[in-house]
Design a protein around this nucleic acid. Structure first.
Lengths: 199, 199
DNA sequence: CAACGTACATACTGGTCGGTATGTAACGCA
DNA sequence: TGCGTTACATACCGACCAGTATGTACGTTG
């Protein structure tokens, strides 16, 4: 029995399995035993890497969910014409999401719904993710206004917050209807809104 | 001990307590024992009125959540000028929601996030609520187009689905940030969108 | 090669969960 | 006034939960 010990890999496997479990069932309904079964890791190993279930949940939020969200708005901010980039991105986005993802919903939105209202420990990291996202969008809107791409009679913060609302809502509606067409319909609605922001 | 038996009142108390519990903690995290403690009803009484936890959850969805949602879109449909009614309603809406409600989030959205993806039994009733809502909004948009109030170069279904998305998203964002100002900001964004629909 | 900390593994605990079996008192109806 | 059904009440169950106590083997370091 020369089984290698790979602490980093073990931790990563736990993180990914925990993310999958939390994405599907939510935080509270996720079972550590089930995660251990899925990863073929033992309870001793899990509690070696994470102090408790809460710590595991926090690690999932900070190390998996946060980067996942950031990759979605970062490209827009870095574009030369943010508004056009946003429209293009939204136009393309609906088709990059598969049925499975659609039924599970947005990982961030799921966790917010479940945890932001009740569990104090999770509020801050979830709020941080939202706040970074908002900041990225505000900057994007400002930039598009500065270069004369977007109309400047609107408040960038209102736009940013509303766009995030719409995106999170799109996920929710897709989940409720389990139907890609509704997902696409709301994407078209969002594009309609973004078009109305052109200068 | 001449304790009266009031089956309807008991059932109603259980329903309302279950709704409150599910609104705050979600379905899975709701504890029947906690509901019994809150209502001072015994387990025998609960299981007399409801076959199991699932049946209680379904009753909450159909008899509490569904009417709650319907009261929100019904007035719009019945208005003479639906688009203007919608704008007025959204303008006023943000201030009619108190801090507590804001932190708990939209009961419908919460349940969708938790149950629509995983639990087959809850999918249909939740979808029905969404579908009725959508139908109400589509009719409203069509009406506003017919009377020349709204532009008619947009698809009523796209608008309806997007508006629902935006509303559900607004709740989610308010919950994430626990901040009324974000709630109001996204309301202003939604009004901006609705204004762009004027003929 | 010895020793020590890291990285696991196993077995178990107390508590809570939804659900059930069984009993009983209030009520409508004869 | 008796009888059956409705509306509860109480006690208990097995399953599962997060968490812990304890043990052990790997692997780096001196």
């Amino acid at each position: 029995m020369t089984v290698r010990r790979q602490p980093d890999a073990t931790r990563q496997r736990l993180l990914e399995a925990a993310f999958a479990e939390m994405h599907r069932y939510g935080y509270h309904a996720s079972s550590l035993d089930q995660i251990l079964r899925a990863t073929e890791v033992t309870k001793g190993a899990l509690y070696h890497h994470f102090r408790n279930k809460q710590a595991l949940g926090l690690a999932v939020i900070n190390e998996v969910v946060r980067p996942w969200i950031e990759t979605r708005w970062r490209p827009m901010l870095e574009s030369e014409r943010p508004l056009q980039a946003a429209i293009d991105h939204v136009n393309a986005h609906a088709d990059t999401v598969d049925q499975n993802m659609l039924e599970l919903g947005c990982p961030f939105a799921n966790l917010v719904q479940e945890l932001a209202g009740s569990d104090a420990v999770f509020q801050q990291p979830l709020f941080d993710i939202f706040f970074e996202w908002k900041r990225g969008l505000i900057e994007s809107v400002r930039k598009s206004q500065t270069i004369g791409e977007g109309r400047d009679d609107v408040d960038p913060e209102d736009i940013a917050v509303f766009v995030i609302s719409a995106i999170e809502g799109m996920w929710a509606i897709a989940k409720a209807s389990r139907c890609h067409e509704h997902f696409r319909a709301s994407h078209r609605g969002l594009v309609l809104f973004l078009e109305s922001l052109r200068a």
